[in-house]
């Protein structure tokens, strides 16, 4: 029998509030990170170096939120000694925000490369393939955060499954950039920059996958890290 993850039914109202608060903070952090990624991509694909600067200089907000949420979680552990689903919630929040912070770092990278590419007058039309990968990553991040907010295992599994196309796209971009570099060595500098951006996007996808795995742990109590999606499904069906 699956147990309900009802946050608001503790005998201690204060505990309800603390859990709700820390969960909301994590969701807010997710929203901020999502905006950072979206802005980073926009700066890159529309050659807006101002926006790139804004993204690169806003990462401190994400970092500050991570520190704050970590502290709240520490206090909950110290004061409440949560068990079962409460413990899993606190654990998955602690882990989720670490991945969110790293996604923030990758967004910062996108902003920095947007500035460099725009300053070198590289037209976004020269790396249009990033747009497709970027859209996929944005979608994946949105779905992962949504699965986390709704504690939805099905959605989490679907998001994990979608990550395989992301990897294919990243490989295709890598191959294309290698070809470009071989054809015209003068392009190596900027091709490498574009490649770092693709790499950042692919890393964001990995972090989204992690977040989805924490959702499965939170809801089902099963640790599904480092197993294939098929093994995951089989384990959850047990």
């Amino acid at each position: 029998m699956d147990t309900d993850l009802n946050l608001t039914q503790h005998i201690s109202n204060r505990f309800n509030e603390e859990l709700e608060e820390v969960r909301n903070l994590a969701l807010n952090m997710g929203g901020l990170v999502e905006k950072q990624v979206s802005d980073g991509l926009k700066a890159l694909l529309k050659a807006k170096s101002k926006l790139g600067e804004k993204v690169a200089s806003s990462d401190y907000k994400v970092n500050a939120m991570e520190v704050d949420i970590d502290e709240q979680c520490t206090l909950i552990l110290a004061r409440r000694q949560p068990a079962a689903s409460d413990l899993r919630l606190v654990m998955s929040i602690i882990k989720t925000i670490t991945d969110l912070e790293r996604i923030g770092d990758e967004a910062e990278q996108l902003g920095m490369y947007a500035i460099k590419l725009a300053d070198d007058n590289i037209k976004p039309s020269q790396f249009v393939e990033l747009r497709h990968l970027g859209e996929h990553v944005k979608e994946m991040l949105h779905d992962a955060l949504d699965a986390f907010a709704r504690m939805d295992v099905e959605a989490a599994l679907q998001t994990i499954e979608a990550s395989s196309t992301l990897k294919e796209e990243y490989d295709a971009i890598s191959r294309q950039l290698i070809l470009q570099m071989m054809e015209d060595p003068r392009q190596i500098k900027n091709a490498l920059r574009v490649h770092w951006c693709a790499r950042s996007l692919e890393r964001i996808g990995d972090h989204c996958e992690n977040i989805c795995e924490y959702v499965v742990y939170l809801v089902k109590g099963r640790d599904v890290r480092h197993v294939s999606i098929d093994e995951m499904k089989a384990e959850l069906e047990e």
Binding site: I11, A83, A84, L87
Partner: peptide
């Protein structure tokens, strides 16, 4: 039992919920 109880009543008791 303390990380992943299977019965809702167990869950409610060890997490300090009404039930």
């Amino acid at each position: 039992i303390f990380t992943n109880p299977q019965h809702q009543l167990t869950e409610n008791y060890i997490t300090g919920r009404f039930g």
